[in-house]
């Protein structure tokens, strides 16, 4: 009674007046969910700012031990993926589903590239004993000292408190990475639906919704990159 099938490309669900209203409602729903994502990651940023304030030298040392060039590369990769995603939405709105499909493939490729870089970064850190859990915390302080910027002394860096930088590094970039993976999953879903010819200029809500999600993931990285790698 409630899940009778209907042609989604031309008809709205029974409780909506029109496809237009349904589209606007769905989009607003996605925006609200994006607000929740901002608040959830936001909590971690609060933790970062507080511990940075309390253990300033440790955060400088931790940040300097990360490879900022890889971080910058990942930033560019994500920005490119945001561009291809945005353009994919544009193409779907114009009915150019084949172009949209190609752009989403590129977006997925960028996402995979990001995760590959992350993999190398993580394994390097673990190799240097900087994973803050499971009794794996044996930081290579010589490595830290080597990368520490001038004006700061390694003597001020307490390994125990340094751990609090890496806790936030792994949790924040890890959770972000999880969201990238979820994004890849969502994009596979969109690819399947695009191939199935399920979208038209009048009905493309899911593509736009996934696009909004992907841009939020990008925005989170925009803040993560300088906080973790640069300053």
């Amino acid at each position: 009674m409630s899940t009778a099938s209907y042609d989604k490309k031309t008809q709205a669900a029974h409780h909506f007046d029109s496809l237009e209203q349904q589209h606007e409602a769905s989009k607003q729903g996605v925006w609200l969910f994006m607000a929740t994502e901002i608040m959830m990651f936001g909590g971690l940023f609060v933790g970062y700012f507080i511990y940075r304030f309390m253990y300033h030298d440790m955060y400088i040392a931790g940040g300097d031990s990360l490879n900022w060039k890889l971080g910058a590369l990942n930033t560019l990769v994500l920005l490119l993926s945001s561009f291809t995603m945005a353009q994919a939405v544009t193409e779907t709105m114009k009915g150019e589903n084949k172009k949209a499909l190609k752009l989403i493939y590129i977006t997925v490729a960028c996402a995979f590239a990001f995760m590959v870089v992350k993999y190398f970064e993580y394994t390097a850190k673990i190799h240097h004993g900087m994973f803050p859990g499971f009794d794996l915390w044996k930081p290579d302080m010589a490595y830290i000292a080597e990368h520490l910027r001038s004006g700061f002394s390694i003597d001020n860096v307490d390994p125990a408190n340094l751990r609090l930088f890496f806790v936030l590094y792994f949790v924040m970039t890890g959770l972000h990475g999880l969201h990238i993976i979820i994004g890849i999953g969502l994009m596979f879903w969109i690819i399947k639906r695009l191939k199935n010819d399920e979208f038209s200029p009048k009905y493309y809500t899911a593509v736009e919704g996934v696009g909004l999600y992907w841009h939020i993931v990008d925005i989170i990285w925009i803040f993560l990159f300088p906080l973790m790698y640069l300053i």
Partner: peptide, 12 residues
């Protein structure tokens, strides 16, 4: 929609 996005940032 702008208000929703702004609220996320503002409360954070």
């Amino acid at each position: 929609n702008r208000t929703i996005a702004l609220c996320g940032g503002a409360f954070l």
